[in-house]
Design a binder for these strands. Sequence first.
DNA 1: CGATTCTTTGAAAACAGTCAATCTGTGTGG
DNA 2: CCACACAGATTGACTGTTTTCAAAGAATCG
Lengths: 193, 193
Amino acid sequence: MSEAFEKYLRESCKISDEDLQSILDASTSKNLRKWQSLLHDGETWKSICFISSGCLRLYRFDDDGNDHTVRFGIENWWIGDQESYNQEKPAKYNIEALAQSSVILWTKTAWEDLLKNIPALKDFFDRLSARAFETSQQRIYSLISASAEQRYLEFQKTYPKVFNKVPLHMVASYLGISRETLSRIRKDFTKAK
Amino acid sequence: MSEAFEKYLRESCKISDEDLQSILDASTSKNLRKWQSLLHDGETWKSICFISSGCLRLYRFDDDGNDHTVRFGIENWWIGDQESYNQEKPAKYNIEALAQSSVILWTKTAWEDLLKNIPALKDFFDRLSARAFETSQQRIYSLISASAEQRYLEFQKTYPKVFNKVPLHMVASYLGISRETLSRIRKDFTKAK
DNA sequence: CGATTCTTTGAAAACAGTCAATCTGTGTGG
DNA sequence: CCACACAGATTGACTGTTTTCAAAGAATCG
């Protein structure tokens, strides 16, 4: 169950057996079936969540009821609604499993204790957050500068594992285009070859 | 010169006079004339930069030589290229002053020392980074879900101070649309009233 | 197999980009 | 003070891209 996480954390930061044990002790595991929801908008997100296996997505409904995929998460990624978590207010986003998945969860207080007591974990998480910000900056640049086609290719190249796990209409929603447009982009590619 | 920063920091976090003094001692001030560059792509960004006054932008050139505004910064904001800073590699981005501006700078090593020695500063900066991430998440959602017109209105409403300081063609580039399209969006508004 | 979901396609309409020209406001030098 | 240059903003005409809506094909799953 948590072997994947153990391996991940050992490779990600220098952490003692003892600290690793406290981290595991404070966690709970959860299995999600396909389409199971982990967060409904309106609820407050109070967890830190590591994905051991499977695939999840973070998405949001607009005023017309259309959903927009803000982020995907697969094994060894973390997922959550930072805004709701940090500000302790109702989430605007939803999280659902796109496939049978298993996650590891910590409560906010438990996690804060861990961060306080395990500097290596805090350092690691700070670096992780920094990288997440860099990634979102890159995504913004891509959205304002590149064509739908370029964004599609970039996504496929950068996140091949994700690409292979999620339905195309969600890729479209992640790229900010309609499924039909994505379909036509793909068509042009097969034709061009 | 640094009064603005002093006021800002006192209001942002609980910090002792002594700590504030060390922060100021480690800093250097710099005045920028209009259009002066603070970072050229290819260089490595090695500073933490606080904007005391004026207006700057972070932008990037695409392969066709068009520039895209990734972010603006005005007084009491921080600006920099996180990716270049964290990974200590050549920047893909540029930073320039859009008006006569003054900034306060810290070297990376000086800043890291400060963070290590002043927990209140570290906490504050962590919160700031968290908020920056939330903001970029919001921007991504806006880019994938909203029309150009909606994004324009949202920008104007959310950052009125920035809106009033920057030329429209840069707003367009920030929104991911051409200046002509922005011009037509604005035209429709004056007509509708 | 039938039901459901996902993807593709076609045609029309809406939207956004490009290019070139014009307009507006600002500031400079004669 | 005027004429001019310049940068920024707007407009028109045209082109290209994306959305929308409706329908039809795949693929998947019980």
